[in-house]
Design a protein around this nucleic acid. Structure first.
Lengths: 214, 214
DNA sequence: TCTCGTTTTAAACGTATGTTTGAAACAGTT
DNA sequence: AACTGTTTCAAACATACGTTTAAAACGAGA
């Protein structure tokens, strides 16, 4: 039980601190202090800081992707050849994501911030790791989206998917400060789940936009 | 001429390196080496690394915001009370932005990457600096958008503006790698200007989406 | 040509980082 | 109770960082 506790508290501390400050700005001393373990524990249990970063992602993404894969298969089977509906796909994705941070909805925000960092911060090793590990599930998801948007050219669909990804990662990343801003500006805060609800019609409408301006 | 050259090459090197690796991951030694100047030059001319970061943003944003302010005033005058059109506003913004990196269109991508970093990376001093310095222009822009979307609730508009910001920053940030991906996946690359063209209908349609899913 | 303020330079400073080490503490087995 | 493999611990290691310093080089005005 001792080992699991140490490993778990390191992962918890690292997840939170990385999401708050970024990877380079978070030292192993920050992490081990917050986790209440010895400094050397990270290198003992994970091998290096890079490996710890990957482990933080794996702990969230592996169950999430397994879950998503099951859901995608189920949808595919239920459809039985018919054309899937876009908002349904998006809601499936968002609900799987919300479920992945099962203990607290705040966890999804934390992880989105990490995902944003993975893109923006150097960390080439991370991008390679994510691609190798979770690329196939993403491709399966894309096949469904493609089936749901037959009228889009491959090029438009490619770019619009990334517009959607950007809107999602950016706003869910900053959900904490954005809801604080919303509360200050208009007296109405929101939690992550509500932001996701607002996000879906925006994304669905954007993806289906006419080719010209409108 | 000597001083201007040193300052300018430091800013050029810093802008590029920051955008590639982030702030914390880029050392003053990296910057001064790339710029071909002495290590101490940064602290001599800018005072500190933080001040250098702010200077990099100021060099891009100050002319851009002055230009944008002029354009906004011109639109306001031309309207003379009538309701402005959304796609027109977005195109005005994008064209002002493209003009800001006047020498090369790649510059806009670099700056968007920096803007993304400013949000994600710690750098509280940067957010405060940007807010103080460029907040008013953003508010003026928001007034126009509000006038162009009278049917939206303040809450929906708030969130959708940030969805738009996210889609823009994210995709223009990663425009280099994304166009490479597009080229690999579908044999068709794009430059920044073309991505912006694809972005506008997506954003306009998302902002005007019905409140429910659609 | 000499002078004085500005700019550049090489070297050092203090600090913080990721990692390694070797001994101590622990837990399970015989 | 003694042994064994695993985990923790305090301390040290080498390295890289941002910043400072004091002297040298420079450039324009008298």
């Amino acid at each position: 039980m001792a080992q699991k506790d140490t490993v778990k508290s390191i992962l918890n501390a690292a997840e939170e601190l990385f999401s708050e400050r970024g990877f380079a700005e978070t030292s192993l001393r920050n992490i081990t202090t917050k986790a209440g373990v010895n400094l050397a524990a990270v290198n003992y249990h994970f091998g290096s800081k890079k490996a710890l970063i990957q482990a933080v992602f794996a702990r969230f993404l592996t169950p999430f992707c397994e879950d998503l894969e099951r859901e995608l298969d189920a949808v595919q089977a239920r459809l039985d050849g018919k054309v899937p509906e876009l908002p349904g796909i998006l809601m499936l994705l968002s609900q799987t994501a919300l479920r992945a941070g099962h203990d607290s909805p705040r966890r999804l925000g934390i992880f989105m911030r990490l995902l944003g960092l993975a893109y923006t911060q150097g960390q080439g090793h991370l991008r390679r790791f994510l691609q190798k590990e979770y690329g196939p599930v993403f491709k399966a998801f894309m096949r469904l989206v493609t089936a749901a948007t037959p009228e889009l050219s491959d090029e438009d669909r490619f770019w619009r998917i990334h517009f959607m990804l950007g809107a999602t990662v950016f706003t869910l990343s900053g959900a904490d400060s954005l809801t604080a801003m919303a509360e200050h500006d208009l007296g109405k805060g929101s939690d992550i789940a509500q932001v996701v609800d607002k996000l879906i019609p925006f994304l669905a409408s954007g993806l289906n936009a006419p080719h010209q301006a409108g």
